[in-house]
């Protein structure tokens, strides 16, 4: 009998305690961040996005030497790089930081539908060409738009140039073959 009244009392009393807590919260400051109006990159208090946040990748084609380490480091194979070797005497322009290059990077594609934002590629890059940025608003209506070809985007090599270096390399190969055959 005692337990019965105690339980009834507890039921009412704990409900009242809960109601006191919720009514207290009713008049507190809200924490919602009105996202498109208040951007996490500007000022959103706790939700402020730090500068090292890992979002969309960016590749500086002036820095890329086409070594393919990022593609090898990628766990999901979202990076595909195509390079053309340069013929002697027609080396590509050196890196912006000064290093030598002997590969023409004719294609640098990152498939952002696959990318898992793990940042392993940025660690593997010897020249610091590939970095993660804080940009995250890049959704698209078409998933093929999410395959970024950085050669095209930055216009580091025109189509004609790519064709030209490819032809040059092919000719160079042919000559080499001829040289290899002729002494016989």
């Amino acid at each position: 009998m005692k337990d019965y009244f105690k339980n009834v009392w507890l039921g009412v009393w704990t409900a009242l305690i809960g109601m006191r807590i919720t009514i207290d919260h009713l008049f507190r400051k809200n924490v919602t961040v009105q996202y498109p109006n208040v951007h996490p990159k500007d000022k959103a208090g706790w939700m402020d996005m730090p500068s090292n946040a890992r979002n969309r990748l960016y590749v500086d084609m002036d820095e890329c030497n086409g070594c393919n380490s990022c593609a090898r480091a990628c766990p999901v194979n979202c990076i595909s790089i195509e390079t053309v070797r340069s013929v002697p005497g027609d080396a590509p322009p050196p890196l912006a930081s000064g290093g030598k290059r002997n590969l023409w990077v004719s294609q640098f594609e990152i498939d952002f539908t696959k990318c898992c934002f793990c940042s392993l590629c940025t660690e593997a890059c010897p020249t610091g060409a590939i970095v993660m940025t804080t940009e995250f608003e890049y959704s698209s209506y078409n998933r093929y738009d999410l395959v970024y070809n950085f050669v095209k985007l930055q216009n580091s090599m025109s189509d004609e140039k790519i064709a030209e270096v490819k032809e040059k390399w092919a000719e160079h190969q042919k000559e080499k073959k001829k040289e290899a055959v002729e002494p016989k």
Partner: peptide, 13 residues
């Protein structure tokens, strides 16, 4: 709105 304010949200805006 009441549920939102109780939960420290803003509700529909």
């Amino acid at each position: 709105k009441i549920s939102a304010f109780i939960q420290e949200r803003l509700g529909p805006m």
